[in-house]
Write a protein that binds this DNA or RNA. Structure first.
Lengths: 257, 257
DNA sequence: TAGTGGTCTAGACCACCTC
DNA sequence: AGGTGGTCTAGACCACTAC
């Protein structure tokens, strides 16, 4: 058993006390000065220990207030049910999901013409650097930044569906608008990854240290070819994705919760 | 434009230089002492900036060696094709996937009888604290820790399928073994989440700071009820999950890569 | 105004790697 | 041996929040 550095001992001790409920979710930790006295360490050493827990997503800190144990509540997104065309409502699937969960959604929206980034071009099977329309959405739930969503449409598609390039929302939803033009998406390729946020993402999503992002890339296909590529960036601490595969009648028949 | 703290300026400057290729993947950064001179800051301040980049997963550090720009290579796992019963090979789907990618897999394995944790019990629709069999797998690719996988089987199922409780691998795969007993999984409910690793996970997966884990929970159902719940923990920097939904003939017909 | 965390410094000593 | 990062200290000053 090798000797642990002191800041590790601080972090471990506090983690144990958080795990066993001494400090519950939302409660405040003792101040740095108190902890320094308790562990017979300098304030800086205590800070090292605390910053470890911060970067592990266990606690947060705010100037003038102190350290607080992080609360976890997650929003579930059913990706296999998403964007069903027999959708009962107008508006997009996101708002419906959020309202159904008893929460209040809002979003900011913008449309621009861009050159297609490499990552997107691969998936849309177009030349990198060619033109595409980007529809970008910044989403909030109860005024907390929740996710960003960037959908790219290739240039050839915009020729057939000019409203994609117009600013402002498309009331019936873009998927349905395209379907009305005979461009029906019959398949999706989803990719899911995780990493720490870039500074830009941290700003948009108001993510503190220790919170990863969940990246969801969906490429939509007609029977002929890919028609759109959507990259959604979620706060990892607030979201979970669900997929249903095959026959789940055994699960759904007596659903309570 | 408010003034940034000096350690932020250090982090931002280095991030820019990494992004624009001044320091490419795998290359070494200047030493702390050199950076301190360059930014006219104390060594501790430079360390704050560097540790920011470490916790963002952009660089790693090793004692005696220095700081290095992280390399990214990801392994893709197709979750919708996974565990297909018409699978051509013996052995489990994981090994097949890895070998197909030209990599060398190995795993350690253990079986134990446990009391069902809350999280699992909910999904298997059994009492929390009741008995279940846990089959646990620690997986490596080219000797790099890759993922852990813990599958729980409820007690009632183990009565019908006693080999589940025996130590050692089941050659034909557990899914096929169960199918041979008339217990066929016809549906899966998948849940995907991300967070920073616990110290235990960081140890098993040899994860450094700044790397999140990807959590994949799959509950398998017969037409009657849930029969198993598998929780897989991936290193977030090395793995990506894919799902294919609906008709993707347009994508697969002229697949090159 | 008092208490909290945030930034920054200068310096000491240790542990690890390479030569 | 010399250079690298890792740990730790003591103290200063700033910025934010509460009262």
């Amino acid at each position: 058993m090798s000797k642990q550095p002191k800041y590790q001992q601080v972090a471990d001790a506090l983690r144990r006390e958080i795990d066993n409920g001494t400090y519950g979710p939302g409660s405040r930790l003792p101040s740095e000065a108190e902890l320094a006295a308790r562990f017979d360490a300098s304030r800086n050493t205590v800070r090292s220990g605390l910053s470890l827990l911060v970067s592990q997503g266990l606690i947060t800190s705010s100037q003038g207030l102190g350290y607080e144990v992080r609360k976890h509540e997650v929003f579930e997104l059913n990706a296999s049910r998403f964007e069903n065309l027999d959708f009962p409502q107008n508006g997009d699937a996101y708002s419906t999901d959020v309202v159904n969960a008893g929460r209040r959604p809002h979003q900011t929206f913008r449309v621009e013409v861009t050159t297609t980034p490499e990552y997107i071009a691969q998936r849309l099977k177009v030349e990198p650097g060619s033109r595409s329309v980007l529809r970008f959405c910044h989403r909030f739930v109860d005024d907390v930044p929740w996710s960003t969503q960037a959908t790219h449409y290739p240039d050839w598609l915009v020729q057939e569906a000019p409203r994609l390039a117009e600013p402002g929302d498309i009331d019936e939803g873009t998927t349905r608008y395209l379907a009305g033009l005979g461009i029906e998406q019959v398949g999706y390729a989803d990719e899911i990854a995780t990493r720490m946020p870039t500074p830009e993402e941290a700003r948009l999503l108001e993510i503190g240290p220790g919170v990863p992002v969940l990246l969801w890339t969906r490429t939509g296909y007609t029977t002929e070819r890919p028609v759109r590529c959507t990259v959604t960036t979620f706060r990892g601490d607030l979201n979970r994705m669900n997929y249903e595969i095959g026959d789940l009648s055994a699960r759904n028949e007596n659903e309570a919760k």
